[in-house]
Design a protein around this nucleic acid. Sequence first.
DNA 1: CATGACTAAATGCATTTGCATGGAGTAGTC
DNA 2: GACTACTCCATGCAAATGCATTTAGTCATG
Lengths: 162, 162
Amino acid sequence: MKRKPSTEATACWIRLMRVQSRVLNAVEQDLKKAGFPPLAWYDALLELSRAPAGELRPVELEKQMLLPQYSTSRLIERLVDEGLAVRRECKIDKRGQFVEITDAGRELQKKMWSAYSAGIEKHVGSKLSDADAVKLCGLLDRLGCSCGETASLVAKDGAAAR
Amino acid sequence: MKRKPSTEATACWIRLMRVQSRVLNAVEQDLKKAGFPPLAWYDALLELSRAPAGELRPVELEKQMLLPQYSTSRLIERLVDEGLAVRRECKIDKRGQFVEITDAGRELQKKMWSAYSAGIEKHVGSKLSDADAVKLCGLLDRLGCSCGETASLVAKDGAAAR
DNA sequence: CATGACTAAATGCATTTGCATGGAGTAGTC
DNA sequence: GACTACTCCATGCAAATGCATTTAGTCATG
């Protein structure tokens, strides 16, 4: 008798949900204990720092981060409030703007990466051989197909939740 | 040169975050469009329906669902408000209580499962062979080691996010 | 250049979360 | 039994989120 979502698929689903939640919590908690802001801030700063002139349109950021529009809007607001980014006028489209990372922003991003990377190592890296990590990536990719381009660029200093 | 979190581990992390978020959103959205309450309600109802007399102490529920205490408390409040569960006095420990699922609760759980299972099939099952699903489970388990006991019981009617 | 359809971003408002605390009960110790 | 320490659950309050809407600007068409 064939069930519609096979028990195997269901088991995957469960683990995907639970493991992610566990691991994410663990890493976020570590970061918080070290006195850092939430991961989303890091992700945004990283995207900005990698962008051509350290600046991005909110819409772009939104796409990179897979975040709802209003959520991006408020995230930017907070970064600006904290002096981690500044708004720049967008001359080619007056509706829009550019958000540029500041030096303070770049600095924070780097500092966070040292804590963040430690978290990744502790909660992921240390539990998996590199070979297994590659297998896991491959399998996950089949479900999501959206880590695409970004994924290959990650190399040097880490990345992006949500 | 060896980096601390290997690029492989980092890539895993990214995918784990992004894929989970994508898939969860997709399933939640499907459920919502079908007019159902959030997944967490389903999870709670499922746990309750599987418990010995259809009842559980909030603390147990909390552990099963990996939810913060206050969050469980409010979830129960909502279930009770909607008539999906009732509170029962706990005679052996006056601090506590039992939460028992109602017929309406069991019914909703079943109805939700048909939509939920369709979501799992659509967003997970259909993208993975059973063999690959098994591999994926195995790899994920190494990161979490908490789907343990529950996992094997899942068989018949689905399970649990967060 | 008027119009209608669309995109960029912000925001008001209701709901939900997180955090810290409080009240009530249990259990161990003396 | 009085004290202390701890567990179970609820809740007030501030902050974060989701949703729908608004404001401003673009663009294509006639």
